[in-house]
Simulated scan of single mutants.
Amino acid sequence: MNKKIVVTAAILGMVAVITGAFGAHALKELVTPKYLQTWGTAVQYHFYHVFALLFLAVLNRSSSKLINTSYWLFTLGILLFSGSLYALTLLSIHPSGVMSILGPITPLGGVLFIVGWFTLALAAWKEK
């Protein structure tokens, strides 16, 4: 088990629960249904990739470079994909010019997720 990955997953998992609860209880009255759905998508992908991190922690036997790369790709993907969706939703309460900057960040986070899964597949393929 890789302690660094488990600690990261635990912290990001805790944040996913907090953001999920915040969206379910506090945001209902503040944002449109569209942005509430955006928040829900952020939480959903956030959790998916926390579980992926936990899987990496168990899979990681010898600090494989590919597993470590997947770890960073998933972690940064959560921050960029979910983080940008959280920010877009919160900024919709009081829109500003920053929203146009955040839009392109979301797909970048999605690409990191995709590359992370591909890297995980490569790590599994190379496993003896």
Rank of each mutant, 00 (worst) to 15 (best):
L76C: 03
G97N: 15
P104G: 04
L76Q: 01
T89P: 08
G83M: 05
A87N: 06
G83S: 09
L85Y: 02
L73K: 12
L73E: 09
S84H: 07
P95W: 04
M99C: 04
S84Y: 04
F81H: 09
W72M: 14
H94S: 13
S100W: 10
S82Q: 12
S92T: 11
G103R: 10
L76W: 09
P107N: 09
G77A: 06
L80Y: 07
I78S: 05
L76I: 05
L80N: 07
F74L: 15
L91I: 07
W72E: 07
S96C: 14
I101Y: 14
Y86Q: 01
H94I: 10
F81I: 00
V98C: 01
H94L: 09
W72N: 14
G103I: 13
W72Q: 12
Y86R: 03
T89M: 09
S92A: 09
T75F: 09
L91W: 06
Y86N: 01
L102Y: 01
I101T: 15
F81Y: 07
P95M: 07
L108T: 15
L108C: 13
T75D: 00
S100I: 13
L108V: 15
L88N: 06
V98T: 13
P104D: 10
A87F: 08
H94R: 14
L108H: 07
P95I: 06
T75H: 00
I93D: 06
Y86C: 01
T106A: 13
T75E: 01
P104R: 09
S82R: 05
L85V: 00
L108K: 10
L73N: 12
G77T: 11
S84K: 01
L88G: 00
P107E: 11
L85Q: 02
L91N: 05
L108F: 15
T75M: 07
T89I: 10
G83Y: 02
F81V: 02
L90E: 09
L91V: 09
V98Q: 09
G77M: 12
V98P: 05
L108R: 07
L102C: 03
G103W: 00
S100R: 15
Y86E: 08
P107Q: 10
H94K: 14
S92C: 04
A87P: 05
G77Q: 12
W72S: 11
I93A: 00
